[in-house]
């Protein structure tokens, strides 16, 4: 991943994190909120791999925890693991499959919510398991709804660099 690619990823995640904290975090639908940051991170992880996913998840979580004045490192930890895991899935089996973003979002939304619940529980903070479980299905549906446009946007922004890398490699081999 080039430096310019990294800058684009960083800007994408920064905008998504700010939007999540300021806008989407307050948009409650059936007890759940659409997680635009998680969807963006999953898209980046699928397109740029596990290391980009893990690093992006770490710093995006740091922005969220800083902006919301929450416990530092909490969101970072869960997003780092989510980004890495989805990145590995993209590198191995899901890279060229059309359903990969949707499958990844459905699974990672559940794991992300449960992961946050577990970390809160371990820290001795309020961990309302019933409310979290009840909001899982609406959260998955909401995230799946925004997956299409967000993944399309991220793919469009990152694809140009992918083609450049591709043509350079062909020239090198030729």
């Amino acid at each position: 991943m080039s430096a310019f690619d990294g800058v684009k990823v960083a800007v994408l995640l920064f905008v998504a994190a700010i939007a999540q904290v300021s806008i989407f975090g307050q948009l409650h639908v059936f007890g759940a909120v659409p997680d635009i940051l998680l969807v963006t991170l999953v898209a980046i992880s699928l397109l740029r791999g596990s290391v980009a996913g893990a690093v992006g998840g770490f710093f995006a979580g740091l922005i969220v925890d800083t902006a919301s004045l929450g416990t530092l490192g909490l969101t970072s930890l869960v997003l780092t693991l989510s980004g890495f895991w989805i990145g590995r899935y993209g590198e191995t089996t899901g890279r060229d499959r059309a359903h990969a973003p949707y499958l990844s979002i459905a699974v990672v939304t559940v794991l992300y919510e449960l992961g946050l619940l577990v970390v809160h529980f371990v820290l001795g903070e309020s961990a309302p398991a019933g409310a979290v479980v009840r909001s899982l299905l609406p959260a998955v549906v909401l995230n799946l709804i925004v997956t299409g446009p967000v993944y399309g946007l991220v793919r469009r922004l990152l694809r140009a660099m992918e083609r450049q890398e591709l043509s350079a490699e062909v020239q090198l081999l030729g």
Partner: peptide
């Protein structure tokens, strides 16, 4: 290694913040 470093970093921040 990247994953381990990031997870350790997150846990360190979490511990200090907590």
């Amino acid at each position: 290694m990247v994953l381990v470093v990031l997870v350790l970093g997150a846990l360190t921040l979490l511990t200090i913040s907590f």
